[in-house]
Nucleic acid binder design. Structure first.
Length: 490
RNA sequence: GGGCCGUUAGCUCAGUCUGGUUAGAGCACCUGCCUUUUAAGCAGGGUGUCGAAGGUUCGAAUCCUUCACGGCCCA
């Protein structure tokens, strides 16, 4: 154990004194009749002259001792309430016990009458109190709180104790996920769970985390997407399925990426990507209305209106408008690379044609998509699971949704032709051989599933963390993930 | 992977450019006073491996090198 600071030594001394008094500083139970909020309500609802007695419990957040009386605030999950301790009520010994051995951060249970102070605050006049849990480490400063982002992420518990707005962000996150679930449940979707440990990874262009099953002597991958399993369920006869859960991608950490993130995917038989766009708009608007009570949000200084319908712009047109480059006029990676260099773009010379299109999208188009926008109709090269447009086999029926300059969702009319799917996987295999480590793997069982027949289907995936960022106006994904990945320390 | 910035008391931060008594402030903490306070107040008290390791120097929180962790920007 590391050496104790002076402040910690003080607290350990107090702990020892409490034990010497024969008091358990960590008792197993507490009697509570009211939360802080309920106690306040009870007082407001009491008849004139009545002073309800309550038992409340919580963490001591401030203490103001004034000789023979003291005020303090305790906080529980419902909020704060003030308590008032007087020597002539408690007796000298008990009062001294509080003054001497209780610290900010301790959990305390109190029983007493409610009254209103001179300044109007509903307060418990304490008749009895108990130590519920002694805190051995001092809390951060009451006024500035905890600002050090490294400590905030590594010791999120401290962040949550002292930063109320952080608690609010994660409460909003929970309500967003709950609203998404409600929306899909009400639209006839079945929530399912598919494997996180997979013998083959797929459903996205990404590198996986690899692990090993000792008993089976088998390499397994943490899923990078739920897509291929969910489509197997459409083959199986479910018409509408969805899954909410963690995906894992072996990639860097930045403001919009955490290697472990929460995604939602749904698949809808007898629907195409146009239907899915309609549903996306409706869903995001529903969630915003349920959680925020409005369709107007502010994100990173921008006013954003989520009201449907959203713009739908072909990707090719969007890139041409922003860069002057029509990528179809440069069918080879080489010529497209030269065209990008001519407009001053800084790109990887070895990039594949698909990666070059992707870089045009990311660098020139995406940052400008502040209002909700669907970019539609993507090149087939970067979309190995999407169905070709009947009139243009170089393009697939795919869209991505952008809000606030962030990509929030990705969807297509699903490729359900098993022979075409095999060809796509083979093309991906060649890309992998050529050095694209994110290229898709051949999945024979998935092709077998498609070979039994999958109805025309629209599929969709969204990064929940990014939606939470938008709805809580946080510009770093780490501020919407309770325990973001940081490099191990110590 | 590259560039820039940060790391000083439990917390929030000065001090580093321009090296020089014993390293500072506020909150927190300790001692005393104070029975309706609320960033309570008054009087007194620094409780520190200046991220780590080397180096330069009579002398290093400060200058140099390397490393660790974090942030921002770029790839």
């Amino acid at each position: 154990m590391a050496e104790l600071s002076e402040l910690e030594r003080q607290r350990h001394l107090k702990l020892q004194r409490i034990r010497e008094k024969g008091i358990d500083p960590y008792p197993p139970r507490v009697e509570r009749t009211h939360t802080a909020a309920q106690a306040r309500t009870a007082f407001e609802n009491a008849r004139e002259g009545e002073t309800p007695t309550v038992k409340v419990a919580g963490r001591l957040m401030s203490i103001r001792v004034m000789g023979r009386s003291a005020f303090a605030h305790i906080e529980d999950g419902s909020g704060r309430i003030q308590i008032y301790l007087r020597q002539n009520v408690l007796g000298e010994e008990e009062y001294e016990f509080f003054k001497r051995d209780f610290d900010i951060g301790d959990f305390i249970g109190v029983e007493g009458r409610l009254f209103r102070t001179r300044t109007g605050e509903v307060t418990v006049e304490v008749q009895r109190f108990h130590m519920l849990a002694k805190s051995l480490k001092p809390l951060p400063e009451k006024w500035h709180g905890l600002r050090n982002v490294e400590i905030r992420y590594r010791q999120r518990y401290v962040d949550l104790i002292v930063n109320q707005d952080v608690r609010r962000v994660f409460a909003t996150r929970a309500r967003i996920i709950s609203a998404l679930r409600r929306f899909l449940d009400e639209h006839g979707f079945l929530e399912v769970e598919t494997p996180i440990l997979q013998p083959l990874y797929g459903g996205a262009m990404a590198r996986p985390f690899t692990t090993y099953h000792n008993q089976l002597h088998q390499t397994l991958y943490l899923r990078i997407a739920t897509e291929l399993y969910l489509k197997r369920l459409i083959v199986g006869g479910y018409e509408r399925v969805y899954e909410i859960g963690k995906n894992f991608r072996n990639e860097g950490v930045d403001q919009e990426h955490n290697p472990e993130f929460t995604a939602i995917e749904f698949y809808m038989a007898y629907a195409d990507y146009n239907d899915v766009m309609d549903l996306t708009e409706e869903m995001v608007a529903y969630v915003a209305q349920e959680v925020l009570g409005t369709l107007q949000i502010t994100y990173d200084g921008n006013e954003i209106d989520l009201t449907p319908p959203w713009s739908r712009i072909p990707l090719r047109q969007a890139i041409k408008e922003k860069t002057g480059i029509d990528y179809r006029e440069y069918p080879e990676a080489e010529s497209l690379y030269q065209a990008i260099r001519e407009i001053g773009g800084d790109v990887e010379p070895k990039a594949t044609w698909g990666k070059l299109v992707d870089s045009l999208l990311n660098n020139y188009v995406q940052p400008k998509l502040i209002q909700p926008t669907f970019l539609i109709d993507y090149p087939i090269e970067i979309s190995p699971l999407a169905k070709k447009k009947p009139e243009d086999p170089s393009t697939v029926e795919r869209f991505e949704g952008f809000i606030g300059g962030m990509e929030v969702c990705n969807a297509f009319t699903e490729l359900n032709d098993p022979i075409d799917q095999r060809e796509r996987f083979l093309a991906q295999g060649r890309a992998f051989e050529a050095g694209d480590e994110e290229a898709h793997q051949m999945d024979e069982d998935f092709i077998r599933a498609l070979s039994y027949g999958m109805p025309p289907t629209g599929g969709w995936g969204m990064g929940i963390d990014r939606l939470v960022m938008l709805f809580t106006n946080q510009t770093s994904i780490r501020d919407v993930i309770l325990f973001p990945l940081l490099r191990a320390k110590e």
